[in-house]
Design a protein around this nucleic acid. Structure first.
Lengths: 220, 220
DNA sequence: ATAAATTTTTAGATTAATCTAAAAATTTAT
DNA sequence: ATAAATTTTTAGATTAATCTAAAAATTTAT
């Protein structure tokens, strides 16, 4: 069965909406993510349902079938592997790779992905710290906490970000925060949830509660 | 101006037909290459003409404008650079890369191609020995002759093939012929244009006139 | 619990890319 | 040089993906 690039993008949108325990994705939520009209979504959802990639009850939202989920997961795998390639091999910055990977993920060749995976050393996480599902669709898990959950005196290493928008990533670059950076919590300010930290045992700074929530660390 | 993948493929088809001094590509020739009906070609050609990518006189065939030629050349550049990547970095064989490169060539990012080119060491020829146009669209040239033009006693190194079909390339693999192989002409048989050669100073064999015509060598 | 607001679907159109069949134009062969 | 063959174009349809406007269904608020 042939699946168009557009259909693939809808599957990915539904996947990302239902990822966080949401039982189903609403027409509106999908149209927002896909930047199309709600009417287009209704149409497309019907087509995907005919192909058994989603389950749709009128006015109740959609969720992926096993087959649909498999396709979406492989798109995530391809996206993240290409991002590793772009950063590790072509020296792109972590905030520059999303759009290109968005195109590369639609290249259809299992053999290519096997070889790319090997070439990259079978990475388990992408340049933003997001897990790369393996060829069977299994996501690696990792012991991690958001920075705002650390107590004063505790230390950790940055392993991921909650959000991969270009502005956020560039802001982190400005602060000197990236994956692998050591963080020690020096002080916590209840008043606005900001935190004073030391980066790599050298650089002291205060960061806002908003940023703290979006940084994942592995405790030491 | 946005150019669809389909439009790009038509431009490439017209490029490859007109490449060998043909002043224009006929509707039929394009339909054969694109595996579509002649009617579809007429339609598409009109659309490309409206975008100033081709010149079309009814019933007389089409040729690329400067802009159309530029796009086609960059597609060739991208195709061949990706082929180098697939063979050099991902260890694909030279007969396995065409279809994947056919997809990768449509990825639209100048920055990506600059970095890929650098990563690969700015190669001038692809895994089949075909020249890779530079970012300005200039093709490298090379002193080369077809094997059938060598005289008895002359030697050369295989630098290219006239045809990159999978069967031909696999046949060459079987013979032990690939880019970089040294060839010495030992004898020429007028009767059927076959030639007796020695490969890499060790392996003697007779190859047919058909194969001789399709192998390009650099004389020593 | 019903009216108002919101969400979703339906109806009807549009555009890109394709098709087949028929008509028109061009080329080839006698 | 004209008839036959071939090539190209036109006409009219089709499919995927999209849209706006209106209708229908659901949810929210009084």
């Amino acid at each position: 069965m042939k699946i168009s690039k557009t259909e693939e993008n809808y599957l990915k949108a539904i996947f990302s909406i239902t990822e966080k325990n949401q039982p189903s994705a609403s027409t509106n939520a999908i149209s927002k993510k896909m930047k199309t009209s709600a009417a287009s979504v209704t149409d497309m959802v019907k087509r995907l349902a005919k192909k058994k990639l989603v389950i749709h009850e009128s006015h109740k939202g959609v969720h992926l079938t096993k087959a649909g989920n498999q396709i979406a997961t492989m798109l995530v795998r391809k996206h993240r592997l290409w991002e590793v390639f772009l950063v590790e091999k072509l020296n792109f910055l972590w905030d520059e790779v999303h759009d290109i990977a968005e195109e590369l993920e639609h290249i259809d060749s299992d053999e290519l992905m096997i070889r790319l995976d090997d070439f990259l050393g079978n990475p388990k996480f992408d340049p933003h710290g997001d897990p790369i599902p393996d060829a069977n669709g299994e996501f690696a898990t990792r012991q991690q906490v958001a920075l705002n959950e650390l107590k004063v005196g505790e230390e950790g290493i940055v392993v991921g970000v909650r959000e991969s928008s270009t502005p956020f990533l560039q802001y982190l670059d400005q602060l000197g925060v990236g994956l692998g950076v050591k963080v020690k919590v020096v002080e916590k300010y209840e008043y606005d949830n900001s935190i004073k930290i030391i980066l790599n045992k050298t650089k002291e700074m205060v960061i806002t509660g908003k940023v703290c929530q979006s940084l994942f660390l592995q405790k030491k």
